[in-house]
Design a binder for these strands. Structure first.
Length: 205
DNA sequence: AGGAAGATCCGCT
DNA sequence: GCGGATCTTCCTG
């Protein structure tokens, strides 16, 4: 298994969001190894993006890792119940990130199911950013972790052809004005693990 | 010091 | 489709 190196992440969040499709997230936990294939991502583009935590250059204890080097985990808590896992993109001091919204389960199905504590199909165990963290065992403890190192890392895999990728506006950012409409959510259209509807236009070449 | 809103999920109607 | 759960974070006064 080939772990992605730091340089892979050193690009803007939109390009990284697309490039991460098909890659493998692995978390080695006490309960067992859990892994999944990335099928849904969203890009958050720094100070100019009203939907981003770093909008306007806002810098707080919470989003501090967005300002750090690329390839690290930005984990935050939302709605009083859920954690969300992001991959920091771009250069140090350029606060961009990619939200991981859904994976296809590959390994550790039993562990994921136990953590979720809900009856659902295997393909849905890692669907949705909150569910993904719950099943992977990701919480505040992983905030700032380097994705190039155990126990939480991302492994390389073949790039996904453009014909299999679709893009849509991001979910849950209606408050972001003009930025709400930007097509910065990327999905592998055919995957049964993608949240919401799959349609919308293809990514051009 | 206080309050509002949030990159969500699930169960019920 | 709607609303309740639940709490951190940040902004205001």
């Amino acid at each position: 298994m080939n772990v992605l190196a730091r340089e892979f992440y050193r690009r803007d969040a939109v390009r990284l969001a697309r490039a991460l499709l098909g890659k493998i997230v692995v978390h080695e936990t006490r309960e067992g190894v859990v892994a999944g294939r990335i099928v849904e991502t969203e890009a958050y583009r720094g100070p100019a993006d009203r939907a981003a935590h770093s909008y306007g250059g806002r810098r707080t204890a919470r989003n501090e890792v967005m300002y750090g080097p690329p390839g690290h985990a930005y984990v935050y808590f939302i709605y009083g119940m859920h954690w969300c896992l992001n991959v920091v993109a771009a250069e140090t001091d350029v606060p961009e990130a990619v939200l991981l919204r859904a994976l296809e389960p590959i390994e550790g199905i039993d562990v994921m199911r136990a953590r979720r504590g809900v009856a659902t199909r295997d393909e849905h165990l890692l669907r949705g950013p909150g569910n993904l963290c719950r099943a992977l065992g990701v919480t505040r403890e992983q905030n700032g972790h380097d994705f190039a190192a155990s126990p939480l890392f991302i492994a390389d895999a073949s790039p996904i052809p453009a014909s299999q990728i679709a893009r849509t506006p991001r979910i849950g950012v209606d408050y972001a004005g003009a930025d709400a409409a930007r097509p910065w959510r990327f999905i592998i259209g055919a995957s049964p693990s993608v949240s919401g509807k799959n349609l919308v236009r293809r990514v051009g070449k």
